[in-house]
Amino acid sequence: MAFSDWQAFIHMGGYGLYVWSAFALSFLILALLTCYTLWTQRRLKRLATQLQQRQQRLAKRRQQEVNTP
């Protein structure tokens, strides 16, 4: 352990603000990219459902057109 206690660890020998802001920013960027990727996955699921519903509607309409003389 390079630090005597928690306070020294947070303080980082006077460079605490720099060190912790660098780590926080990096994690923020990685977290944002991860969330965006997961959100894209959810959006794809919605898109697939919409496509299927549209296809079903079209099939139904075609069927009605065939059945009506």
Partner: peptide, 17 residues
């Protein structure tokens, strides 16, 4: 790197970036 690596003799703890 943050807690167990030794501090740098010139840059102190800022080098942990």
């Amino acid at each position: 790197g943050l807690a167990f690596a030794p501090a740098d003799y010139q840059q102190g703890d800022s080098y942990r970036i």
